[in-house]
């Protein structure tokens, strides 16, 4: 077990203790500029953490990483054979030179200098010798540990929206290995909503629409209302709902060509044999606008597109040719 002075960013877990994420709720900041953290350590059976008293802002340390707001041009730690510098430039540049020092001490120097919180699941017995001159924090760990450790990285985001950048905020050294082992780190990217298309503002708005009302609207007397309902159901995140699927299938036989066309658009969102069969049937529709929608929606159905080259309608033939040309060029 090791005892860390107040304010340290290095947390060493006692041997045999269960890994803990006790700071999750408060510590996982969204960006460097809005971090106000109350961190209290505690001593309990099997666990030993550093003790940091009071509410404090990490801005000074974290902005050092963000680059440009430190008074001095370099932030460094020198500890009798641990030579570690972080340049002020954005992105920051890291220089490390260490010879035969315990890994824990080296990680402490990095943690205390950069503000990156480092967790070690077990106290490594390794001593390290390394010379690193790298452009980002993750490379620093890769260099220091030479892929001989299981690592987890957590990134935050900094800067204004127009120039947002990722910064490494927290690292877990889950396990270290001997010379014959090598393992890749696992990166946890910042939980940015727009990383997933389903979480875009538009998709969130669509998901918030009452599906039940859409299903009811799909039975409306007015064909335009029915078409709009089917069109909206087509892009619902919950399109695999059996009720939606059933409604779409029924709409393929609607008396309105506009409704049938939107049903084709919806059907094409399903990637299964039943949908393919439905599209093939719709390609025989009496209305050219429905057949055109089949072609327009059949991005990867080359057989359907080939078949559409013989359509009686010039616009359908032209659309099929255009699609095939695009597919051929990709």
């Amino acid at each position: 077990m090791s005892s860390e002075p107040s304010g340290s960013k290095l947390f060493v877990q006692a041997e045999g203790a269960t890994p803990s994420t006790s700071w999750n709720g408060e510590f996982f900041s969204k960006n460097c500029y809005s971090v106000n953290i109350l961190t209290t350590g505690f001593r309990a059976r099997g666990f030993l953490f550093s003790r940091v008293v009071g509410i404090h802002k990490f801005m000074d340390k974290i902005l050092a990483i963000c680059g440009g707001l430190l008074a001095s041009s370099l932030v460094s730690a020198n500890d009798n054979a641990i030579n570690f510098h972080v340049s002020q430039a954005m992105p920051p540049h890291f220089e490390l030179a260490v010879a035969h020092k315990p890994l824990t001490e080296v990680l402490k120097a990095i943690a205390d200098t950069t503000g990156i919180v480092i967790h070690i699941a077990d106290e490594p017995k390794n001593s390290v010798t390394a010379t690193c001159n790298v452009a980002d924090a993750k490379q620093l760990f890769d260099c220091l540990l030479e892929a001989k450790a299981d690592l987890v990285f957590r990134y935050g985001q900094v800067g204004p929206v127009a120039k947002r950048a990722q910064v490494l905020e927290e690292v877990w050294v889950v396990r270290t290995y001997g010379d014959t082992d090598s393992h890749d780190g696992i990166q946890i990217l910042p939980p940015v909503a727009e990383q997933k298309p389903d979480s875009s503002p538009m998709m969130q708005m669509l998901a918030a629409i009452d599906t039940g009302k859409l299903l009811t609207q799909a039975q409306a007397n007015d064909p335009e209302s029915r078409a709009n309902a089917i069109a909206t159901l087509a892009v619902q995140p919950a399109k695999n709902d059996p009720a939606i699927r059933k409604t779409v299938a029924a709409a393929l036989a609607d008396q309105s060509a506009e409704v049938r066309a939107q049903a084709v658009f919806a059907l094409a969102k399903y990637d299964d044999a039943e949908a393919a069969d439905g599209l093939a049937t719709a390609l025989q529709d009496s209305d050219a606008s429905v057949r055109l929608m089949v072609v327009d929606s059949a991005d990867n159905h080359q057989a359907l597109l080939q078949q559409a080259l013989d359509d009686s309608d010039e616009a359908v033939r032209a659309a099929a040719a255009s699609k095939l040309e695009t597919l051929a060029s990709q």
Binding site: E194, Q195, P197, S200, M202, M203, A261, S289, L292, M293, V295, D296, A315, A319, S322, K323, E325, T326, S329, Q330
Partner: peptide, 22 residues
């Protein structure tokens, strides 16, 4: 990236896409 589409015969026809950049 290329995508091919068709606008229907109605003058009011509109196609609408979401592009995710990352």
């Amino acid at each position: 990236h290329d995508i091919t589409g068709s606008l229907g015969s109605a003058a009011t026809a509109v196609d609408y896409y979401q592009v995710h950049c990352y």
